[in-house]
Each structure stands twice: as C-alpha cells, then as structure tokens.
Amino acid sequence: MTYSSSVSEAERSDDSSVGHHSTSDDSTIYRDDAEIEKYQQLDPIRSLKSYLKQHKLWDESQNELFIKATNKKIMEAIKVAENDSLPGQDDIFNNVYSAIPFHISKQQVGLQKYFKRRNQLVNGK
C-alpha cells in the first residue's frame, strides 16, 4: 500500500492527510490498524504542518483556507479536462521531445498510412 497525500473529504474531517492506495482500496483488510496508525503518525505532511505551526508560520484558519482554495482549483481543473476533447490520433508522437525527431516523424507517416490501409481492408474504401 502506498500512502498518497491526496486530501479527500473524509480524510480532512479527521485531520489526516494520508489515505489508501486508491478510492477502491481498503487497506484495513490486509493491514493491522496499529500499523496504519503508526505510519499515519509518520506522515511527512502532518509533520511539516506541525513544525510550521510550532514556529508560528502556519495556523488552522490558514490551513482551512488553503485546503478550500486548493480543492476549488482542482475541481475547476477537472471540469476543464472533462469538457476538453480527446487528443487527435497524431498527438501520440507529440511531446516525446521538444520537437519531433526524424526517426519518429517516419513512424508518424507510417501510422497515417496504416489508418488508410486498414480502412481499405476493413471497409473496402
């Protein structure tokens, strides 16, 4: 199990920044509660928070505002992503390098030829 630092609704309510591997993972099934609790205590985000609070660099109200603002940002980003169209077929070769090198552009041409040829074979056009 990996402890992720994502902050879900449930985790926030008990002031813990760690969670299970994914939303469908319930690690209490295969881990002792004591072991989970032990590692929650070692959570570096929790430690950093208490360190900052100790040095009066951070407090609960700041924390709450920060979490609220961050959640809002994430929700907005998800909305943008969900409404965006899927990348086009040629996008597969973009962003491997800052610019597409020759050997990859050859493969790009190969993929386009393949689409045409498959269309011909499958649909006869």
Binding site: I92, Q107, L111
Partner: peptide, 13 residues
C-alpha cells in the same frame, strides 16, 4: 512506436 506507452492511444500504439 518510439514514444512512452500512451493511455488514450493504446490501440494505435
């Protein structure tokens, strides 16, 4: 292809 293994484009990869 010479790319990382793509998520959306798996079937074209």
């Amino acid at each position: 292809w010479d790319t990382p293994f793509p998520y959306i484009h798996e079937k074209h990869y």
